[in-house]
Amino acid sequence: MAKASQGKPNVTLQQSIERILDSNRISRQDYLQLTSAMLAGKGLTDEDYRQLNSVFDRFQLGRLKVVDERSSS
């Protein structure tokens, strides 16, 4: 049962990461969610860590635009 409950947050996390990398935009809420996921580290795969590092690298390099709203549509 624990694996099933851990799978759902990872799907959501992966979707968030893909959306951020595709749009080159990150909300403050997304940043906090990704930071919390990275620090908690529970249920994260090596690929999750690679994707998170990619987001944080782009953030540090100024390649992501920080937006206040989660959805810019």
Rank of each mutant, 00 (worst) to 15 (best):
A4R: 11
A4H: 11
P9V: 07
P9Q: 07
P9R: 02
N10K: 13
V11E: 13
T12D: 09
L13K: 03
Q14W: 00
Q14D: 13
Q14I: 04
Q15G: 07
Q15E: 12
S16E: 07
S16G: 03
I17A: 04
E18Y: 01
I20Y: 08
I20M: 02
I20T: 05
L21Y: 03
N24K: 14
R25A: 02
R25H: 10
I26T: 00
I26Q: 00
S27N: 05
S27T: 04
S27E: 01
R28T: 08
L32Q: 11
L32W: 05
L34G: 01
L34R: 06
L34N: 01
T35Y: 09
T35P: 03
S36F: 05
S36P: 02
S36D: 12
A37D: 05
A37F: 04
A37Y: 06
M38H: 09
A40P: 01
A40K: 15
A40Q: 10
A40V: 10
K42W: 04
G43M: 01
L44P: 05
T45E: 12
T45F: 07
D46W: 10
D46L: 13
E47Q: 15
E47H: 14
D48G: 09
D48S: 15
D48W: 05
Y49G: 03
Y49S: 11
R50N: 14
Q51E: 13
N53Y: 08
S54R: 15
V55I: 08
F56C: 02
F56E: 04
R58N: 12
R58P: 00
F59R: 10
Q60D: 14
L61N: 12
L61F: 09
G62P: 09
G62A: 04
R63W: 02
R63F: 07
K65D: 09
K65Q: 14
V66H: 05
D68V: 08
R70T: 01
R70N: 06
R70Q: 03
S71F: 04
S71K: 04
S72P: 06
